[in-house]
């Protein structure tokens, strides 16, 4: 029981640290495209670590199933919204800074 508890604390604290790092990235990185990668940290490992930590606290049961479904939903939806966001930005003509090549337009 001690080990499970300790593991869940590590996951909770590590996940929230990753989230803070992602938020820091939102501020520090130079343009929309790079910032979307930072938000990707929050969407994937940051939130999964926190949800996993909560699962270990909850033990087997309906609560754990609900947490798993939230994690699954985030995994399915995160890439879709960041893809839609960057595609809209690209179609709108936001430039990619320091790009080597400029492929044809996206409509």
């Amino acid at each position: 029981m001690m080990i499970v508890d300790a593991l869940s604390w590590v996951l909770l604290v590590g996940g929230s640290l990753l989230c803070v790092v992602g938020g820091l990235g939102l501020l520090r990185l130079p343009d929309v495209y790079t910032r979307a990668h930072a938000a990707g940290i929050n969407d994937t490992l940051g939130s999964w670590a926190i949800l996993l930590g909560l699962m270990l606290q909850a033990g087997l049961g309906l609560v754990t199933v609900k947490l798993a479904m939230i994690g699954l939903f985030m995994a399915l939806v995160g890439p879709v919204s960041s893809h839609a966001l960057l595609k809209a930005a690209y179609a709108h003509g936001v430039r990619v800074q320091s790009s080597d090549e400029e492929p044809a337009d996206v409509d």
């Binding site: 604290v13 996940g15 929230s16 938020g23 501020l27 929050n42």
Partner: peptide, 14 residues
């Protein structure tokens, strides 16, 4: 509480 503080800090940054 630690996790809550981390999440709130991230929300402030966002």
């Amino acid at each position: 509480t630690a996790a809550l503080i981390g999440i709130l800090v991230t929300m402030c940054l966002a």
